[in-house]
Design a protein around this nucleic acid. Structure first.
Lengths: 238, 238
DNA sequence: ACCTGAACACCGTTCAAGT
DNA sequence: ACCTGAACACCGTTCAAGT
């Protein structure tokens, strides 16, 4: 598992750098999950001592912020840019969803520091697409924040589900929860959830995410895209 | 700060119980923040040893889950129940927002375990209101999840903002971030955010939350409330 | 300037021993 | 049965000492 070539137990040849540390951190997080990222594990992977890392990044938090930003920037670079506004925003939102699937720890990280680097990237790309979509300027901040908050909620749930169900398979995990909703005492006080229990086990996360985006975009379009008469007005800020 | 009556340094008279532990945990979390909740602090407040707590609750996570559920149940009990469907859902969503304002640590907690007790309460009340609002059954699961995910995103951001800005006042904190968005290098690659920088410092969190709810409800109403012809259909699950 | 790694000041959790 | 609190196995971070 460690030391692939123990014979050549040489010192690191290339100098340590913030980028190298972030690379190693992403590798550990992806392979072994959030709680496996410790300074001891990271410095072992980098063949150095824990103190050395602090010469390049000031804290664990800073490493996580940078790692999340790296992935967000990378994934956005791969989204085709020749799409119309409507398809553009959908593709970008889906890119985020798939990012959380591939790197669930990002979902935890994004809620750990407000307006961190990765969030700025997400806010920027969402907002510029909304502008292209014709959302009036006075609604742009709120509309972009709404989509961002929805994405962050999904990301957080995804991360915690993955953390908890690392061994258990997904359907068994959902079945357990649905069984809890069907429990007599719970069902009596929670009739709506009881009714939804079967949908919980069957639902497709990705499709549900798409449908959620559709709700929000439909609302934004109805309220905030310039049109002669919108009968559902919300207060404009300022 | 500790030992209010050091003379009468008696053993606890009432027996320790899960409820008493949860009470004490909420008090510590509210007064001193998330990272102040340790078994040492908690057992000191309860005048017992750290091990005693484990006889009633199995882990720190279990304490946090129960504490969050307690607050959600309490706050929902105070929401007037004689409102029509439209006002009912808005009041419930606002009650959540105000809960996160009064107890920011809840926002972190809700993303820590998937479908935990507090989330079931939230899902249930949101869903039953959507049902009353006339949302078709095949859309109810997705619609309730969308609102829930939005709320969770807001809650997480709120929690992390509070954690970071415990000393700093809010407007100074936002001004710092907005200044970052106005930084020449950042602004060049993030024109949308540059444009929004002033709105960031001026915006009202609560109003923005209300506006976000309005977007989502408008979308749900347009798509999922029974009406002869809706021209924006989303795929129905199953 | 950069790296090293032992040491520090904590955690959550366990467990032998008490009542 | 319930409680006690020292001990265990960790953390993130610091810092004197090396190169």
């Amino acid at each position: 598992m460690t030391s692939p070539t123990p014979a050549r137990r040489s010192r690191r040849t290339d100098a340590l750098s913030a980028d190298a540390i972030i690379d190693a951190a992403i590798a550990v997080l992806d392979a072994e999950g959030e709680e496996a990222l410790t300074f001891r594990a990271l410095s072992a992977a980098l063949e150095t001592g824990p103190g050395a890392i602090y010469h390049h990044l000031a804290s664990k938090q800073e490493i996580l912020v940078a790692a999340a930003q790296r992935l967000v920037v990378d994934v956005l670079a791969e989204v085709p840019s020749d799409l119309d506004a409507e398809n553009g925003i959908r593709e970008v939102m889906l890119a985020f969803f798939d990012l959380f699937g591939a790197h669930p720890w990002v979902g935890t990280q994004l809620s750990r520091e407000p307006w961190q680097a990765a969030l700025l990237e997400m806010f920027e790309v969402i907002g510029s697409h909304l502008d292209a979509l014709g959302v009036e300027e006075r609604y742009q901040f709120t509309a972009a924040s709404s989509l961002l908050n929805f994405v962050l909620g999904v990301a957080g749930q995804h991360a915690s589900a993955t953390r908890l169900a690392r061994d258990l398979d997904r359907s068994a995990f959902l079945r357990d929860i649905a069984d809890g909703w069907k429990d007599e005492a719970t069902a009596a006080s929670h009739p709506f959830s009881r009714q939804m229990a079967d949908q919980l086990t069957q639902h497709d996360d990705r499709q549900q995410y798409i449908d959620g985006i559709d709700f929000i975009l439909a609302g934004i379009t109805a309220v905030a895209v310039d049109s002669p008469a919108s009968n559902r007005a919300i207060e404009s800020p300022s």
